[in-house]
Design a protein around this nucleic acid. Sequence first.
DNA 1: ATAGACCCTAGACCTAGGTCCAGGGTCAAG
DNA 2: CTTGACCCTGGACCTAGGTCTAGGGTCTAT
Lengths: 137, 137
Amino acid sequence: MVGLTIGKVAEHAGVNVDTLRYYERQDVIGKPLRNGSNYRLYPEDTIRRVRFVKRAQELGFSLAEIKELLELRVSKNASCANVRDQALAKVDSLNEKIRSLQSMRRALVKLANECSDDGPVGDCPILDALDEKGRVR
Amino acid sequence: MVGLTIGKVAEHAGVNVDTLRYYERQDVIGKPLRNGSNYRLYPEDTIRRVRFVKRAQELGFSLAEIKELLELRVSKNASCANVRDQALAKVDSLNEKIRSLQSMRRALVKLANECSDDGPVGDCPILDALDEKGRVR
DNA sequence: ATAGACCCTAGACCTAGGTCCAGGGTCAAG
DNA sequence: CTTGACCCTGGACCTAGGTCTAGGGTCTAT
């Protein structure tokens, strides 16, 4: 066995086979080898890659952004300094996201507390959560 | 002036007027009052609400989820304990998201370091970033 | 050698989240 | 009293990210 069929990859990554073909068209995963019957044969780690994609999507990344993230490591050809700069830029935007989520969490915890001690439901902390604080991106 | 016209709200919130009408249809923002000419007149804080929606979307929340978040505070009628439980459930899923983003950040920092000291670009830390660790949701 | 479970491509279709007309009213300025 | 910038509704259209169907080949077990 030189690789996994599309059905196996789909099964183990928890996605539809059409999704894999779609990712291939979008260049999110590389073009796999083909066997004599023109069946796709994927390397094992495609499964991890696809799982990464699905999880990153839940975090609000678009396929295009995810592609960029994944390309960071592949580009051993590109200048290393360049890769580093890109990686650090991503780190900055991740920091933004993390801060926003934390502030949202604070708001929810506050809301939960106000609720539990039957106090006044006063002014809503939720809307404060994501106020201003310099745009992401 | 009893309220803001749709154009003003759109301008200050940084969205298209059609987006506001769309949000209204989707019940993400409440139906505004109308003046004698059937023009929508929004309360001031609609602007903050809409900004919240846009920022929450960037964090990977769907409009349906954002609606739920926003409804948490409005439902002073619903049992307070219920609201608290929902809020705490959201906190849990936020924790998941935050952890995932942090692990992604760690991976990128590691990648950047490997790059800066010209070491081996070895095995990719990025794919490790979002491995397993119990699904979100 | 035939059924059932796979695989292939092309292209239609679907949902979410908007965005853009068309056709028509409103309002302030000149 | 008309021009330009607004507003209204209804419905068409668009992108991202898939999902499904048709029409056809492959593989494995019986």
